[in-house]
Design a protein around this nucleic acid. Structure first.
Length: 505
RNA sequence: CGGGGCGUGGCGCAGCCUGGAAGCGCGCCUGCUUUGGGAGCAGGAAGUCGGAGGUUCAAAUCCUCUCGCCCCGACCA
């Protein structure tokens, strides 16, 4: 009967997922590209998400004894050269500062002058410079464990940037700890992984799988790398956080030594762990729909927008008073350690409701004279269709707002989990495996594939072969994987367990 | 950096092949009208057609170079 249902975002996810993603970022007013390729301007609506993620994590870290500190942006080049694998891993993507001054050039422009004696590298990660500090801070077993975190930006020169997912500069937190022994360090590594899981699942409503990375996917210089992997709506894997057991590699490189109770000099055992603004990309791709962003209430930039409906001037005062009174009432309510954030949108245009849908605000409330007469509000929820709105008594709304938000939060998680489960397959035959990861339309690949739980013999060559053939990699070896013998999907050799294969961001 | 696609008001697009006064939809501003759930009518503001050269009487349109964005590949949180 009606013209086809319009979506607020074109193209839709099914039509062109990458372009859809960019349109959501734009339409939700979260961020924009900067004049510098690969960098982004994070606007208030996007930055608020980061602040909320930061607050949640920061508290969790501190509950486990971690302290915040700040280390310099610039790292002397020789520091990066200390750990061989580390050098190799990061050398290709480092920004290097070689001068400390600009001088007037011939054509009125500026030219770099004052060359530095030793070039400075803009931190791609801070293991080396923090290691240098740690080496001076640690001398006795009594100084351990040393538990430090910093919130900062880092730079990794990216060839193919994607806003929030892979930018040349991004914001993150990097935790660095030093311990007396391997067990304690490993325990910390996994403890932080648990925190990332908790952040992802109970705050971002993003289901994740904890696992260990294979050798080829490991952090350069690490002994083990652990990850939380999410599946986003085009069924690709997204690494949402990593935690590394560094063994004594960096302690050796940076001379982090302590005297043990036996009066022996020992190298410390270290860890590092981080999550970045990439998480915002994970939120967009996990929950967003064809009408735009969908924000999980627990970390939403704002929770509710109130939209007064004023058709006749004589109603104005009554409607505005009612709206402001409701806003005051709502702002007193605490939702998971945060006061509820209420927006009031007084624009008198029809499209404003859609602006808020595109921004992903969990709850929209329309308030007009008729509602006021019944002392009720007209409510729209972002986990439901744009026109599935209902009138409910104001008192009830205020009383149940927390549980409504919780319900939305839960619905988003359940929906995301269902998507992952529906697209996770145990695959044992090589043909099925190749078919699973091959689109029907190779020109314009449709959304296909997912997570394949398949056997792998542990041989790097097999992993490499799959990657070459299909651009599919082992996302992780799940920590809770059951021991189950089988045959390797690539070579047919013996395999002790299933791992997760997927295309990845 | 290699292959493919695309850059036209804030957003989405047409026009380009065949050169001849910059258009459409949404949004924005003003006014009037209007069951309260993506309103209607009328008027209006806003673009050096990504940038630089060139061909031409005339370039959004043809040619060359360049920059940016998206996809595929190499690299990666």
């Amino acid at each position: 009967m009606r013209k086809q249902a319009k979506t607020a975002i074109t193209p839709t996810r099914a039509k062109d997922y990458p372009v859809w993603y960019q349109q959501v970022v734009k339409a939700s007013d979260m961020a924009e590209n900067s004049p510098v390729r690969g960098c982004m301007v994070i606007k208030p609506w996007g930055y608020a998400l980061w602040e909320n993620i930061r607050d949640v994590l920061d508290n969790m870290f501190k509950e486990t004894g971690v302290k915040n500190a700040y280390f310099p942006l610039f790292i002397p080049k020789r520091f990066l050269e200390k750990e061989a694998e580390h050098v190799e891993g990061f050398a290709k993507e480092c920004a290097v500062v070689t001068h400390h001054r600009l001088e007037g050039g011939e054509d009125g422009g500026l030219v770099p002058a004052g060359p530095l004696e030793e070039p400075l590298v803009v931190r791609p990660t801070s293991e080396t410079i923090i290691g240098e500090s740690f080496s001076r801070w640690v001398s006795s077993y009594r100084d351990l464990p040393l538990l430090i975190n910093q919130w900062c930006n880092v730079v990794r020169w990216e060839l193919r940037p994607r806003i929030f997912l892979r930018t040349s500069e991004f914001l993150w937190q990097e935790g660095h700890t030093a311990h007396v022994g391997p067990n304690e360090a490993m325990e910390r590594t996994l403890q932080m992984l648990d925190i990332y899981e908790r952040l992802a699942e109970s705050y971002l409503a993003v289901p994740v799988i904890k696992g260990e990375k294979t050798v080829s996917e490991r952090f350069p210089g690490a002994v083990n790398t652990y990850t939380v992997e999410a599946m986003v709506q085009d069924r690709k894997a997204l690494q949402a956080g990593t935690s590394h057991f560094l063994g004594q590699n960096f302690a050796r490189a940076s001379e982090i030594k302590y005297q043990s109770t036996q009066e022996k000099e020992e190298y410390a055992w270290t860890t590092s762990w981080g999550v970045s603004t990439r998480l915002i990309g994970a939120i967009i791709m996990t929950h967003g729909d064809d009408d735009g962003l969908v924000l999980p209430p627990k970390i939403a930039s704002s929770h509710i927008v109130l939209m007064p409906i004023i058709k006749k001037p004589e109603h104005r005062n009554a409607v505005m008073d009612y709206t402001h009174a409701l806003a005051r009432e709502l702002r007193e309510i605490t939702y998971h350690q945060r006061k509820i954030i209420v927006e009031i949108d007084c624009r008198e245009t029809g499209g404003r409701g859609w602006d808020w849908i595109k921004k992903g605000i969990p709850i929209r409330v329309e308030i007009g004279p008729r509602d006021i007469a019944q002392d009720s509000v007209f409510l729209g929820r972002r986990d439901r269709g744009p026109s599935e709105k209902e009138s409910i008594p104001k008192g009830q709304f205020v009383k149940t707002i927390v549980s409504i938000l919780d319900e939305i939060q839960k619905n988003l998680f359940d929906r995301a989990l269902r998507l992952r489960e529906e697209n996770t397959k145990q695959i044992d035959s090589k043909d099925d495996f190749y078919a699973f990861f091959t689109p029907e339309n190779s020109e314009r690949p449709e959304i296909h594939g997912g997570f394949a739980l398949s056997h792998w013999c542990g041989n790097q060559a097999c992993e490499e072969k799959i990657k070459e053939d299909l651009s599919v990699t082992i996302r992780c070896i799940p920590l809770d994987a059951e021991k189950e013998t089988g045959t390797c999907i690539a070579c047919g050799g013996k395999s002790p367990m299933r791992v997760i294969f997927a295309k990845a961001y």
